[in-house]
Simulated scan of single mutants.
Amino acid sequence: MSGSTEQLSRKISGAKDLGGVVRAMKALAASSVGQYEKAVNALDDYLHTVELGLIACLHRASKGFPAIDIKPQHADKIGAVIFGSDQGLVGSFNEVIVEFSQKSLRALAGRVTQIWVVGDRAKALLAETGGIPVRGLEVPASLDAITPLVGQILLELEAAREKGEIWEVHVFHNHPKPSSAYEPVGRWLLPLDAAWEQKLHATPWPTKTPPQVIDGVSSAFPILIRDYLFVLLFQACAESLASENASRLASMSRAEKSIDSMLDDLNRKYHRLRQESIDEELFDVIAGFEALTRKKPKPSSDTSLAKTSH
């Protein structure tokens, strides 16, 4: 019995330690979700500002933007940027985005020639399919680390397009939803073609005063384009991180409930065994006491007479 209670005591202690780790990870995930969601909201305003700058350039340019819709001979080559996770405990986070991206890429007219994937776990899932070169990148550990990652991706995309390795570029990531949920989304990143220009052209200028572009459209346009692409990738990364931490928060909440339920069960078993052990000890004490205090039987009358006659 003592061995059973000792084993249960060790299990209870281990479950409490595990519960402490889960609660710490839950608190960290909850804090991270809020941080990345605030960044996403701030990026919406910044993206709108950049788009207004592009609209101003379009209004000032007599012949529209430079020729950005001319297709080269390698226009059928497609590149993709996929945001996943490095760490686990996120449920089916990586499986969802990898499956969604593969399905979306198969539906495109061209052929996928190169993939940039952020996160070792998503990279491992993509590597199992084979046939397409996969460039792995580390998931940023903080908001400050997103900027150099996005800068690196833009440089590599630009180099690959100059070499003729890709032309179209699509971005895939998980988008956060209310109640710690997420959904996979995809977006056309490059090229910025005539359809994109027409969309901007259809957007009215918010004031009656015509916009002015300092130093002219030719100098402002390339800078605004870089900012536009940067914001789109930064936003995709921040939304992916918010979704990842939301998924981890949900997983930790489920784990916490399971651990609490297991602790309740273990504590009930422990107290039952302890009570049974105490009852057995009490029975032994009572039985010993009764054995010590039990009166000896009196001698019979025949035996007394026999002794007297002698």
Score class of each variant (00 low, 15 high):
177 K>N: 06
137 L>Q: 13
150 V>G: 09
145 A>T: 08
158 E>H: 15
181 A>G: 06
148 P>K: 11
142 S>I: 00
166 I>S: 06
121 R>A: 07
182 Y>W: 03
138 E>A: 01
140 P>M: 13
156 E>F: 06
147 T>G: 04
167 W>P: 10
176 P>V: 05
169 V>H: 03
167 W>Y: 15
155 L>W: 11
171 V>M: 02
151 G>A: 13
135 R>P: 08
181 A>P: 09
152 Q>K: 15
177 K>S: 10
159 A>Q: 08
143 L>Y: 01
126 L>I: 03
140 P>F: 14
138 E>W: 00
126 L>Y: 01
173 H>V: 05
133 P>Q: 07
145 A>S: 11
116 W>C: 02
125 L>H: 03
126 L>M: 05
135 R>Q: 14
134 V>S: 07
176 P>C: 05
164 G>A: 11
178 P>H: 06
150 V>C: 07
118 V>F: 08
148 P>Y: 12
122 A>E: 14
156 E>C: 02
184 P>E: 01
167 W>N: 12
133 P>V: 06
115 I>T: 14
124 A>S: 14
165 E>Y: 07
115 I>Q: 12
130 G>D: 08
140 P>R: 03
148 P>R: 14
144 D>I: 04
166 I>M: 09
151 G>F: 05
126 L>N: 05
161 R>M: 03
183 E>L: 05
174 N>V: 00
164 G>T: 12
127 A>M: 05
178 P>K: 06
149 L>S: 09
159 A>D: 11
147 T>D: 15
172 F>L: 09
144 D>F: 06
152 Q>H: 04
172 F>D: 03
174 N>W: 00
154 L>G: 07
172 F>H: 00
123 K>D: 15
142 S>H: 10
116 W>T: 10
133 P>T: 10
119 G>V: 02
169 V>F: 03
123 K>W: 14
165 E>T: 14
129 T>R: 09
174 N>R: 01
139 V>E: 00
132 I>W: 07
129 T>L: 05
145 A>N: 03
118 V>T: 07
157 L>P: 03
130 G>S: 14
177 K>E: 06
178 P>F: 04
148 P>M: 13
175 H>R: 11
134 V>L: 03
119 G>Q: 00
175 H>Y: 05
119 G>T: 04
172 F>P: 02
177 K>Y: 06
162 E>W: 13
181 A>W: 06
159 A>S: 15
165 E>W: 11
124 A>P: 12
121 R>K: 10
129 T>V: 06
184 P>F: 00
184 P>K: 02
135 R>D: 15
128 E>L: 03
184 P>I: 01
173 H>F: 15
159 A>R: 15
146 I>K: 01
143 L>T: 10
133 P>A: 13
132 I>K: 05
123 K>G: 13
166 I>V: 13
183 E>W: 10
152 Q>Y: 13
140 P>C: 12
124 A>T: 14
123 K>Q: 13
170 H>I: 03
125 L>S: 04
143 L>W: 08
117 V>Q: 11
178 P>C: 10
178 P>L: 02
